[in-house]
Amino acid sequence: MPRELIDAARADGAGWLRTYAQIVMPVSRPVISAVTIFVFVGVWNNFLWPLLVVTDPEMMTLPVGLNSVQDVFGVPYAQLMASAVLAALPLLAVFLLFQRRIVEGIAGTGLK
């Protein structure tokens, strides 16, 4: 957040609440959106903690459930790959819906 924007708002007579609501939040919105999407993807792909903690198959995350898919005769690779594609579809949908915000959050400098 450029300090000059906040200083300009203060010079115009804006208080801290108005500066926050009308200057800081609109400029920070792309960054907050990108971080929110990255956190969603990280939680969606969480593997280690649910693997260690969860014992009930109803509570497993998708990566842990995919890891636990085994047959008496080994790993059914076709079913495992099909399940992995289905598990990745919500992430692909989130990326396609919020692609512009992700790019703005990463590439934005904070000045418009």
Rank of each mutant, 00 (worst) to 15 (best):
P2H: 14
P2C: 00
P2R: 10
R3H: 09
I6L: 11
I6N: 08
I6A: 13
D7W: 08
D7G: 02
A8C: 11
A8L: 12
A9F: 05
A9N: 02
R10A: 11
R10K: 15
A11C: 00
A11M: 15
D12Q: 09
G13W: 07
A14V: 01
A14D: 00
G15Y: 02
G15N: 10
W16P: 06
W16T: 01
L17T: 03
R18V: 02
T19G: 08
Y20R: 03
A21N: 00
A21S: 03
A21C: 05
A21P: 00
I23Q: 01
V24K: 04
V27H: 05
R29N: 02
P30R: 01
V31L: 15
I32T: 15
I32A: 00
I32K: 06
A34G: 13
A34L: 12
V35L: 01
T36E: 05
T36W: 14
T36H: 09
T36I: 12
T36Q: 05
I37M: 13
F38P: 06
F38N: 13
F38E: 09
V39H: 10
F40P: 00
F40R: 05
V41S: 00
G42D: 14
G42V: 09
V43Y: 13
W44I: 06
N45R: 07
W49S: 11
W49L: 15
W49D: 13
P50E: 08
L51R: 06
L51T: 07
L51I: 07
L51M: 15
L52E: 09
L52C: 09
V53Q: 12
D56Y: 06
P57W: 12
E58S: 06
M59L: 13
L62N: 07
V64K: 08
V64N: 04
L66K: 10
L66C: 11
S68H: 11
Q70C: 04
D71W: 13
P76I: 05
Y77H: 09
A78P: 05
L80A: 07
A82Y: 09
A82L: 07
S83K: 02
A84N: 01
A84Y: 04
V85D: 03
L86S: 04
L86T: 02
A87E: 03
A88Y: 13
A88N: 10
L89E: 12
P90V: 12
L92W: 05
A93R: 01
V94E: 12
V94S: 08
L97F: 12
F98T: 04
Q99A: 05
R100L: 06
R101M: 13
R101P: 00
R101A: 15
E104H: 12
G105N: 12
G105V: 14
G105E: 14
A107I: 07
A107V: 07
T109V: 09
T109A: 14
L111G: 08
L111V: 14
